[in-house]
Structure formats: C-alpha cells, structure tokens
Design a protein around this nucleic acid. Structure first.
Lengths: 333, 333
DNA sequence: CACTGAGACGACAACGTTGTCATCTCATCC
DNA sequence: GGATGAGATGACAACGTTGTCGTCTCAGTG
C-alpha cells in the first residue's frame, strides 16, 4: 500500500539507512545521492511513518491528550483553541475527547489516551474520583488539570480561574451601587466552580457587614430554564432581591429572561462573558475571564513537564475582569 | 519506564504471547493462567502500547484527522462535536488541527496527519489548491470534505449546506413581506459559501422579476466591523434598501449594529443561526443550519470509506431552515 | 607506495506488539 | 498401552523506523 523506506531505497538503489538519513536531514550524504533519494520519494509518494518512528527508541509521540466536557460549548472550545496554539509551537498534535461530564467516559478516554502513549494529558476533571490516574502519573505521563482541581492525593499542576475573587468583585460591584438584597444563582453544589463562586458571594457580603440571607441563594439551577424559573421565584418573593449575581453564563441568560419577562429592572451581574452580551436589549455586566488563556497556560505547563522540568506542583490562578455594560448598574428599585 | 508485555510475562512466569492473549481477551488461556497475568498487569501498571499495536500488521491507527479553520469559532466547534460523536461510536480518536485559513498550514497539517497514519481525513478546505492531496488519496487515505468542495480533480465525498437554497429562502421571505430593494452583504468572493449565497440572492430576485441592483450588493465585508460600515453606507444612500440579507453571522451582527445605530427598522435576515439571536433587542430572523449534523454526516461517510465501501464520490446537501424571529418581518419603510 | 583518516554508506538490532506455526500435556479411546 | 487429538502455551518473525557500529573509498601525506 504505502511505500516504506525500504521501497524508496530499492527504487533509488541505496540502503535503507541512507534513505533515513535523507528524510531526516542528517549530514553525511553526498548531494547526488540525496537527490536520487528525493526523486524516489516523490516518485513513490513516500511519507515517513510516524507510528514506527515513535515506537523505535521509545520516542515521544509528539501528541497530547485533551479531555474536556464538550467541544461544542464555547468555554471548552476556547480552552481547546488555547491548547492548540501552544501545541502548534511545540510541533505537537492534540488528540481530544469529550467526557460529557460522565466519569466513566472520562476514565475510558484517559486510559485510551495513555494506551496511545500521548506525551501528556490536559484534563478538565469531572466531579469523580481521579485516583485511578495515579499509576499513570507515576509511570511518567505528565498531566495538568484545568478549571477544577483533582483530589488532594494527586500531585499535578492545576490552572484555575480566580472564582472566589471574581465572584466577590461582582457582588461588591452590586453593593457599591447600593444593593443589599442580592440574590445568588449557583450551579449544582457538586461543581467546584459553583462552590467557589458561592464562597466569593458570601465573602463579599460578609466584608460589607451584610448577613447572608439563605432564601436569596439558589443552589441547583443548572441550565437556562432552571435559572429562569429560580429567578422568577425570587422576583415573586414578598421582599424580592434588587440584584442578582448569576454564577455562570447559562444562569445569567436564564436570569435575564426572567427579569425581562417580569418587566423589572433588577440589577444583574453574571460570571463568564459571552458573545453578544453587549448587544442584548439590556447589555450585561459580567465577570470576564479567558478560557483560551487557561488552555495556553495549562499547555505551557504541560510542555515544561514533558521536557522533564521537575518543579513542585503548580497552582495557577487566572485573574478575572469586571466588564461594566449596564445590567449591573441599575440602582435598587 | 512503562512496563511491556515482556515485563508482565516475566513477572507472571509465562510467555509474552500468553500475556498478549490475555490482554486481547483471546480464547485458549486457562483461567488460573489468565489470573496470574492479570495480577502481574495490575501490579506493574501495564498498559498495552497502541503505537506498537498499530505498527504490527499495518493495523489501523483507529484515529481520524480533522482540519478546520478554528475550534474557537462555534461553527467549527459544532462540526468537531458532530465528528466526535460518530468517532466515539466507532471507537476512533479525533486528532484535530486549526488551519486558520492558511493554505500552507493546512497543507502542513494534512501532511503531518498522513505521516501519523490517521485512518481518514475530514477537511474544511481553504480557498487554495488541494491537488497535493491526490497522492495521499491514491495511497489509500480516505478523505471527506465539509462546507466547501475541493477542486474538480479530487474525487472525494463532500458534505455541504444548501447555501443557494437557504439564501433564496431568506430573500424570498423578504420579498413576501413586500420588499423590493433588498441589499446583500456577501463575504469575500473567494469563499465558496459566499459565492453560493450570493447566487441564491440573485436567483430569488430573478424569480420574482426584480432586477439585481449591483449598488445594493456588497462583496468583501469579512467581519463585524466591515459589515457595519458597509451597511451604514447602504443606509446612507439616497434611495436606501428597505431590507438586508446578510451572508453569515458576523455580517448579520454588523448589519444589526448599523441598523440600530441609524435608528432604522430596516428588515434583516441573516445566514447562520447564532446563540442569543432571540434575546437581542431586535430578535433576528435567520437561515439556520446544523453544523454538528455536517460533522456527523461527514464522519459517517468517512467511516464507510474506511471500512472499504467503494461508492462513487458522494455530494450531500444539508437543508436549511428559516427561523422567523422578528427582524425579517418589518414592512418596507 | 603504504599509511592514515575522514567521509559516505550499509548491515544489523531493537522498539512492543501480534500472527503463524510448533510443541507440549493430558484425557480419551480402541 | 499406544495412538489421537484438543487445548494450552511458547518460539519466532514481522511491522517501519533509527541508533550503533562496521566497511569501503579515496585524497592527502611521508
């Protein structure tokens, strides 16, 4: 089927090794010999077999595995983009898979990637137990986690967003605009980022001497519809909140729908920026962060590990930025 | 570093081949032998080396290459998602790369993917010449193109959106609402989809006996800013259009900005659906299509080719759907 | 002319796995 | 009791490449 170096060698009347030398640009081949070989290569359409190349000498496969929840989700696709940019610089390929937040699938993916001998792993871990990774790590597969840390037992680098700080800045922004009754839409409490953002919300209130009113906190909404319902409920309270902090972009959209539907001017700040946030009927004030940057930083850390650098496990915290657009600056009723 | 089957064999006191049999679930191993082997496997943390596996016997690598313009762009990330879904069913991995519409990079990517011996290629081709692919195709690498066809000379499957039909339906919708002066924002004429959508625009007008007024057609705007400027220019004409057809979602957003800025109620229909189109100040009527479906269909075709099916090259045309949301139904001034 | 050494090139093994075929062990049967 | 054969296991080669080392050629030197 595909010609091998042996075929090229036969065709050019030289030895296998000489073809190898030419293909890899090694020195010590006479120009006319090299030309003969190159002619044979184009005549036969030879392509060096990277599979064989990786096998021989336990060479690197020049590939890294990326496990995310879902490429179709902009948050993850931007991470993927950041990863790919760094991979490109290092002449690495990215082999990616979507876990869909299913721990079994995640585990299967990681295992398969290890079997393919990727040089390193980049993982956005699901909420499950990751100790099964320990043997792989001990065996020398480098790994860096993104967005959520794995359990204590796993000594690996992590790149996180400053969830607590970002949430705090959002809530403080609302407080600065005079709000005291601020609702919090948090995602499922099993999710690390949801817990952290909730913590930032609490800290901001406490820092300003505002008691946390649990009736204004909604843990659990996980999609636009859930957030819309939860917000509608909050707005229907006898003493409704004058502002809402939404823990991620799904929740922000849901809250926005409910606020618009209720014809209120309730203030809103959301975690996560999203496209067209500035083009909505009410432009949305958000805590922005940079998923592509997370991918890049994680990939860079991974490359350093792959190059054998032996630092203690790093924990990178990426900053957030409050983008003021209107929805967060409405005064209390 | 990582243990091999030989190590496992030594540890279990059996032969290499017996380990292979156990690992691959072959019959003809006594249960107690299998157990010894399995114990050795977990004791050593053995993982079968898929690289060696693929090499031996010219086996498939169980991977496919995906070349898109940019994963961070939702259109492409949805394609990637569709591809992933099918790949998962066939136990294949997806190795992807972003061409950034750079023909040289695309070529490099495809070449590298072939060197890695992917079992098949999925490509959204850039505007360049793809004849360099012919040797690879002849050499047995299956390939399926998406979104844009490669040149005539390349006999391969293609999965396209019904660009002409979708554009025609958009413009006919505007005509049905009484518009006669309909502007067309098309992307760079070098882009296949831009040409096709422009053609749909022409056909719709001609079918209704409306002459094409070239002063209402803008070829070239390629981003939001360009479309905004072009639309502003159109609206400033002595006899401005009463409706705009925008050839893709970037152009739609640009047009929308310009229309809002000018305080007009100019009707607007855009090609490509986008998230939050229904949440904008003016909800946008669009020609929707399904990029994930394109990825799925292309991946399915590719899998059939990889399984050795030998059909003539297929050309799949995916339907579009007009989603009415408001912006396309304003009457002429 | 014999010697030296650098430069060009080739033979061979090895990477980790699996397909092929050979061997070895028994229980079964006449 | 020896032949038979099924079942279990092992030896070995091969996949396509590259690292190591050996061989060969030939110009330069004494």
């Amino acid at each position: 089927m595909r010609p091998t170096m042996r075929d090229v060698a036969r065709h050019a009347g030289v030895s296998l090794k000489t073809v190898s030398r030419v293909v890899n640009g090694e020195v010590g081949v006479r120009p006319d010999t090299a030309e003969k070989v190159n002619e044979a290569i184009s005549a036969l359409g030879f392509r060096r077999n990277d599979i064989a190349r990786a096998l021989r000498g336990g060479k690197r496969t020049r590939s890294l595995g990326l496990v995310i929840k879902d490429v179709a989700n902009p948050f993850y696709s931007q991470i993927a983009r950041g990863v790919e940019e760094v991979a490109r610089l290092h002449d690495l390929f990215v082999i990616s898979g979507c876990s869909d937040e299913d721990p079994a699938r995640e585990r299967h993916l990681i295992r398969s990637l290890c079997e393919r001998r990727v040089d390193g792993l980049l993982v956005v871990p699901s909420a499950a137990d990751h100790r099964y990774l320990i043997p792989e790590l001990n065996m020398g597969t480098a790994a860096v986690f993104m967005d959520r840390p794995p359990e204590e037992a796993i000594r690996a680098d992590v790149v996180l967003i400053d969830n607590v700080g970002g949430a705090r800045s959002a809530v403080e922004h609302l407080i600065a605009h005079g709000h005291r009754r601020i609702a919090c839409l948090a995602d499922l409490p099993g999710i690390f980022t949801a817990r952290e953002r909730r913590r930032g919300y609490d800290e901001a209130l406490q820092a300003h001497g505002i008691p946390v009113d649990e009736s204004l906190v909604r843990l659990g909404p996980h999609d636009v519809a859930g957030a819309e319902a939860a917000t509608a409920e909050l707005l229907a309270l006898g003493d409704p909140p004058t502002a809402v902090f939404a823990g991620n972009n799904r929740l922000t959209i849901g809250a926005l729908r409910a606020i618009q539907a209720a014809g209120r001017t309730t203030a809103l700040v959301g975690f996560d920026d999203f496209e067209l946030a500035d083009m909505l009927a009410t432009p949305v004030t958000v805590v922005a962060h940079y998923p592509a940057e997370m991918g890049r930083r994680a990939a860079e850390l991974l490359c350093r590990r792959m190059d054998g650098e032996d630092l203690p496990p790093q924990r990178v915290l990426l900053p957030t930025r409050l983008i003021v657009r209107g929805s967060g600056e409405s005064p209390p009723i």
